[in-house]
Design a protein around this nucleic acid. Structure first.
Lengths: 144, 144
DNA sequence: CCGTATCCCAAAGGATACTG
DNA sequence: CAGTATCCTTTGGGATACGG
């Protein structure tokens, strides 16, 4: 599936132009709502990993060494609640649990990956910009 | 500019396949780094608004009624530091300040808008999924 | 092996008052 | 008008220990 960025930009502009656009309604804003999830520290990473293939709980832990068990469980729950991933329990001994993308999650993988690609391409320039900014704006001095 | 989601997905998969991929390096992961900014509660919203046209500080405040002055200032600083927006001061009395997208910010608008469009299209299904999940998983009971 | 519960600290974020 | 400083509350997220 292909997407034209110009069209997407215009679509969003049109959404914003509506009076009382949902985009500006703190209660009902899809952007804040969804970005709050996929934008969090771990969710998009998990999404990408599950995009490769389904993983078991322990596999995910090993794939993301610096995540705590509590956060992994919590993030998976949240994604599952949103219908982006499925959770399947196999009644083995000891039990094993597999996570994978639902169709909805799969459909999210495209736009998110596009953003990741942008990110990877421009990361250097962003870091450069930060360095420059910090040079121009040295840590402030207190009044004497 | 058009983007093929399949290509983006494959690109990211290739990035993840590399041994010691930067994507899994907590220190150097562009995804975490950039998502931490644009994924935050306000940054993407500001990006979209500035995509419409440059805005003054007060205009932004009015456009986003539920943002505190401190958060607005902080978010703008962060975006400026990353080189996504510019800040221009007009020496009027009283002074006025204009914010707008840089070229880099403009180039980010496409991928982010694509994600916003996805979000708007699927928000209903996500909310539905949440409701269903909450029905299936009633608030837990304490042990007696 | 998976998941939950608890505790605790650090950072995010809001309100308000003050300055250039 | 724009921005800073301070205070205070809420949340995010890590460590650990325990239960199914």
């Amino acid at each position: 599936m292909k997407v034209d960025y110009e069209v997407a930009i215009d679509t969003v502009k049109a959404m914003m132009a509506e009076p009382a656009s949902a985009l500006f309604d703190p209660q009902n804003c899809p952007v804040r709502d969804v970005f709050a999830h996929i934008g969090d520290k771990w969710a998009s990473l998990i999404l990408q990993i599950l995009g490769l293939r389904p993983h078991r709980f322990g596999e995910l832990r090993r794939a993301i060494p610096d995540i705590s068990q509590a956060m992994l469980t919590g993030t998976l729950r949240s994604l599952q609640r949103d219908g982006l991933i499925y959770r399947e329990v196999f009644p083995t001994r000891p039990p094993s649990v597999e996570y994978g993308l639902t169709e909805l999650g799969q459909s999210l993988l495209g736009p998110v990956s596009a953003l990741v690609v942008w990110t990877a391409e421009h990361h250097g320039r962003i870091r450069q910009s930060r360095t420059q900014y910090d040079l121009d704006n040295p840590p402030k001095k207190k009044k004497l």
